[in-house]
Amino acid sequence: MSAVVLAHSALAYTRCLVLQPIRKLPVAHRSPCSLKPLRVLQPGRCYAAVLSREDRNHLLSGVDPSNIDAVTRILEQGKNAADRWEIAYSSFLTPPTLHDALLALKRVADIGIVVWGGYSEAERCRLALGNIEAMNNSVREEIEAAAVSAVSISGNFKYDKVSHGDFLGAVLGTGIVREKVGDIIVKGDQGAQVLVVPELAGFLCAAVTQVRVVPVETSPIPLSDLEVIIPKKDVMKTVEASLRVDAIASAGFKMSRSKLQDTISGGALFINWKEVNKGGATLKTGDVVSLRGKGRIEIGEINVTKKGRYAVEIMRYL
């Protein structure tokens, strides 16, 4: 008895293999992949997925060092699901990790991707990953429903003000880890709505009975009942000589360039959630620039004027 794995993929599967006999197919019935060399795995061993040095350098280029391990796991998860014609789901990802994961995944041709956090403006999202053809043939609503569930936590908080952190603490106090919890929408003195992985929604409803000292009722709700506050945006345009972040952010945050440079030197500016220490970094459409204490702006359409300057659309979140 032995087990085999195709050597054509740079991303091998992470799992302990159940040993099966090798079944040879007639050449006329073999797929192009099955004609490639097979590597026989030793019985009783667990083979961990690894990236070759070449593939690692290519796929993880531009990924923040702090996200390398997480993005590598997501790549392996996506490749595994694609090869099996299944759909796999990541944990809830923070914006920086999500940004880097998408950067790497878009370099893999056969993996389909759906990003979903329960509503269109969600900050923490999950990735649904699978064979791109299978994903295209699937109903998006079904993929989304399998990714995220919503739970309502209701109580009378009129005389005991609570915050996002209080609800998060109550949820994590049940033993659920942060990666299984998405956004928490606080509803003032009425409670909150929590996004969570579907397999833990029932447990959460049974486990959360109070927030701080206030008794609460916890129940599942459809995603359509989420009371999301759509962030307001102020759209503006600026014309600059370059696409340097100090020039565009100065216009977007309505700050002098010299004052902005001081904040950059102090580590308060982020491009796509990554700290930037120099004002010379260049921006492109879709980049998100955050300034501590000032919010964030998103770079929209960029056009070159007849004089060779850059007309930049900026959306500032209020």
Rank of each mutant, 00 (worst) to 15 (best):
Y47Q: 13
V171R: 07
G130C: 06
A251D: 06
V194Q: 05
I68P: 02
G295A: 07
A281W: 11
V196F: 00
V181F: 05
A3G: 14
L93I: 10
K233W: 15
R84V: 08
S138D: 11
R56P: 05
P95S: 13
T285K: 15
E298S: 11
S9M: 10
V5S: 13
A247Y: 00
V196Q: 01
T94H: 09
M236G: 06
V216Y: 02
E133Q: 14
S149K: 02
A251I: 01
P21M: 09
G78V: 04
S149L: 01
L59N: 04
R15T: 12
L38E: 14
H164Q: 06
S219Y: 13
P220I: 00
F167Y: 05
V211S: 02
V312S: 04
K274N: 12
T238Q: 04
T97D: 00
G130H: 04
G293P: 02
G202A: 08
E298V: 06
T72I: 11
D287Y: 08
T218M: 10
V63F: 13
F167D: 00
V289Q: 02
G252Y: 03
A206Q: 15
N80K: 15
S90K: 12
K106G: 13
R212H: 07
I221S: 00
E86D: 07
A147R: 02
D100I: 14
E141A: 13
S91T: 15
A128P: 09
K24M: 09
V216G: 04
P198N: 02
L19K: 15
G295M: 03
L223P: 01
V50Q: 15
S31A: 06
P222E: 01
I87H: 04
A49P: 08
R126V: 09
S34H: 05
R15Q: 13
V4Y: 14
S242P: 07
A101P: 09
D64I: 10
G266D: 05
E76V: 15
K24G: 01
T263I: 12
E227P: 03
L98A: 08
E240C: 07
V304H: 04
S242Q: 07
F253E: 06
L195N: 02
I297C: 04
A70N: 11
A145R: 10
N272T: 00
E121L: 07
S66E: 13
E144Y: 06
L105E: 04
S219K: 14
D160K: 07
G300F: 04
G252T: 01
N303L: 14
T174W: 00
V5T: 14
V235L: 05
P231M: 04
A3Y: 12
I176H: 06
I68K: 08
V208Y: 01
P198Q: 03
V63S: 12
Y317T: 09
W85T: 13
K237E: 14
L168K: 10
V177G: 08
L11M: 13
G78I: 06
H58C: 10
K36D: 01
H8C: 10
V214E: 12
